[in-house]
Design a protein around this nucleic acid. Structure first.
Lengths: 202, 202
DNA sequence: GTCTATATGGGGATAGAC
DNA sequence: GTCTATCCCCATATAGAC
């Protein structure tokens, strides 16, 4: 009756695959896409380079999976925060803060997701996910306009500016290191975001 | 007395080098850094691949030179515009407009300068020039604060947002093609920039 | 299924003729 | 000084043993 895999076999394979993805994610976080060779990833996962191809048909396929997992988590979190109770202005402030805080807490990964040189397959995914981040920000801006809390504006551009600002902060180790400057940076970033969207001055 | 090069020889060499840089710039503009192989660049310049190494010690050295020329022009222009007569707010508006307009008029090059995947040597230059763009924007913001035209704020973050917004617009073919949408886009971008810096509402 | 060993291909860089 | 031809390295991907 061994005409198909037992659940145990399946979960072993799944686990190996997940382990590989996790290892690849950590390599990318540490050294970036360009330095994340198949050999380096396999070493990190504790398997042979050739064995990678038991789980993914190509390096690009693995890279895309790594990207989707990580970027998907951020979209998920941002979407949740932006839809929590509160006025659109409050939610925008909270969304920017959480987005930036998470990025600053995991700079390596955030940089990989937002900016690091990557092969074309990942680049295409990145475009897609950047649009999603922007769409989420734009949504709450539009709500703010409808409710009369924000002035008429192109929400897409405002959203682009917000994404760009966070990215820029990550690129330049400006708000690096210690927690105190991080908090100050977040405060300023949120203040900028609210001005950017035209929220009433506090 | 042929113990040193004649002026004519020197200018011939200079010209060949300049021609090579120009060809490399156009290749990078069209296909990006990653596709700009030595062979492709040499073909474009009408010389053999090996001859490239008469002018540059490595591909990276050529790439860095291409980057510096192009990015340097933008810094120059932005600096000039931001220092023309007018209030800081007026100059900021004009600076953002010119910066974005130039980028939109030469998307390929702007994308290469701001965002396209590139080898590490170019990446390092990019960091440096991004800081310069930001410093220029930040300077005018600080002036605005001193003159009481803008509220207290972290000018670096505002400047980062401005750079990021322009970059984002370039990445996503949102304001593509025809002149009408371009103008509308620029208007919105400038409006966003002024809100971002906290300029009084018009 | 995972290993070792190797094939394959591309791009940067060099050598030597002209 | 420029060309042609080639070398060399590295990374992906595959083949076959275990």
């Amino acid at each position: 009756m061994a005409y198909r895999k037992t659940p145990a076999e399946i979960s072993r394979l799944e686990a190996a695959r997940e382990h590989l993805i996790a290892a690849a994610t950590s390599v990318v976080t540490e050294v970036g896409w360009s330095q994340a060779s198949v050999t380096a990833v396999a070493d990190s996962a504790g398997i042979a380079a050739g064995s990678v191809y038991q789980h993914f048909s190509s390096k690009a396929a693995l890279a895309v999976e790594v990207f989707r997992r990580a970027a998907g988590r951020e979209v998920e979190v941002l979407g949740t925060v932006l839809r929590e109770p509160g006025t659109p202005v409050e939610r925008l402030a909270r969304g920017v803060e959480v987005f930036a805080r998470r990025a600053l807490e995991n700079r390596g990964l955030a940089y990989a997701l937002l900016a690091a040189p990557a092969d074309p397959a990942v680049g295409a995914e990145r475009l897609d996910y950047r649009r999603r981040y922007r769409a989420l920000f734009a949504e709450v801006v539009h709500e703010g306009i409808e409710e009369g809390l924000l002035p008429a504006q192109n929400g897409e551009i405002t959203a682009a500016a917000l994404t760009g600002a966070v990215g820029e902060v990550l690129v330049d180790p400006l708000g690096a290191g210690d927690g105190e400057t991080t908090e100050a940076l977040l405060t300023e970033l949120v203040a900028m975001a609210l001005r950017c969207a035209g929220a009433p001055r506090p």
